[in-house]
């Protein structure tokens, strides 16, 4: 063995992956080579230091893929977990389930419940009566009746409109006549005032003229 070969066995020796034979040879060689022995010891100390690293415990878990092969048993277990825990919750759930079941059963079996004065009648396979409609004669009579009613209504409506129009017209004529009378009275009054004013002015003029003539004759 030489130094290079001894070094090549260091890792196997340090990590206990060396055969007994090689271990023996190496240890024998190191006894006579303190420099190599020191080197191995330093490597061992380095290992010891590295081993002081605390263990890791990652608290987070990776997201898992949702299994796609759920059996009926697993499905039933998961369904049971969804059920409420309290007695009240279970009772409400049971009542709701019964109502839904009755509705479905009634729908499938065509269940019919009818209340009469004599009691309640429950029947299955119920088919509701379908209205077949009117005959031709009944339809014609109905149409004729509707036409007559419409004509009467229209006639009343027309008469009402005419009456309203006449009243409106009458009111307008009355209004215009009153307006005309008022206008005539106003014109008449204005003419009277004008006449009086004219007479007054004529009288004034005559008085002035009389005074002028008197003044002229006095001067002569």
């Amino acid at each position: 063995m030489n130094d290079q070969l001894a070094r090549s066995l260091f890792m196997d020796y340090l990590y206990d992956e060396i055969s007994d034979e090689e271990r023996s040879k190496l240890e024998t060689y190191l006894e006579n080579h303190p420099k190599l022995r020191k080197e191995l010891q330093e490597l061992q100390e380095t290992r010891s230091l590295l081993q002081r690293m605390p263990e890791l415990n990652p608290d987070q878990q990776l997201l898992m893929v949702e299994p796609n092969d759920r059996t009926f048993g697993r499905w039933w277990q998961q369904a049971k977990q969804l059920a409420p825990d309290s007695f009240f919750g279970k009772s409400v759930l049971a009542a709701a389930a019964i109502i839904i079941l009755l509705l479905i059963t009634g729908s499938v079996a065509q269940l019919h419940v009818e209340t009469t004065g004599k009691g309640i009648a429950i029947s299955m396979g119920y088919t509701p009566t379908v209205n077949t409609g009117l005959s031709n004669q009944e339809a014609e009579a109905l149409v004729q009746k509707l036409r007559e009613e419409n004509a009467a209504t229209l006639s009343k409506y027309t008469e009402s409109i005419h009456r309203q129009n006449r009243e409106q017209l009458k009111k307008m004529v009355t209004y215009f006549q009153e307006q005309r009378i008022n206008d005539l009275q106003l014109v008449d009054q204005t003419l009277d005032e004008l006449q009086q004013n004219t007479n007054y002015r004529l009288r004034q003029t005559n008085e002035y003229l009389g005074q002028v003539l008197q003044t002229v004759s006095t001067g002569d």
Partner: peptide, 16 residues
Amino acid sequence: NGDMEAFNRLVKRWQQ
């Protein structure tokens, strides 16, 4: 063979 849960178990076993 299509068992996705098997992969989940592998992840749990190896992720740490």
